[in-house]
Amino acid sequence: MRRAARIGGVALTALLLWQALVTLAELPRFILPGPGLVFATLWSSRALIAEHALITALEVLLGLGLGAVLGFASAILLTASPLARSILRPMLVFSQAVPVFALAPILTLWLGYGLWSKVAMALLIIYFPVTSAFFDALMRTPPAWLELARVMNATPARVLWRVRVPAALPGFASGLRLAAVYAPIGAIIGEWVGASRGLGYLMLLANGRAKIDLMFAALIVLAVLTLLLHAAVDAACRRLWER
């Protein structure tokens, strides 16, 4: 309850500062509309915003799910096979030197204007944090556990699956928490580059037509969706660890 009150207090302060800025600087509504107008637009355009938000949410969830599965599998492969490690690890690091943003146009070219180019963007942007957080955790299994397993004549596959993976799940979870915040960025970039639906598309459209109140309304919805996703992933990870 105290946490909710604190968050509410911070939000209220931010809204007041926002309104004060608009009033004192006498900003026109096509530069920065006040919070009152933004929330009025949010309410009056709720059907429109919800329709686009649903698309973006779907892209983000698919990207997050696929990225999590791929990241999990890649980290396991890297851990299990020194060969894979020597080949894939430099490639992974190199891939991070390429800004994912720069790939958005080509992804749109390859995968079309629909859902999948955005899913691919979200996936690409979270793949590395998930893989590297999980892989690092897999390589940090306490040596004493591995020695105990060796004295017990354990097979390497079972050590991986029954000791290293469970011990590394908190690392996987922290990768997922980051991913929950990154994945919407990927989807929005994808929508900016080329889309006919989604919050990113709506924001670009509203911006172009100087409907800044609608742009801000969509932005607020996007931020709230991201926070909800982060909270959901956080809760799921906690449950996974406590089970």
Partner: peptide, 8 residues
């Protein structure tokens, strides 16, 4: 029972 499970 960890040992048995690690040996299969």
């Amino acid at each position: 029972t960890l040992g048995a499970r690690l040996r299969g």
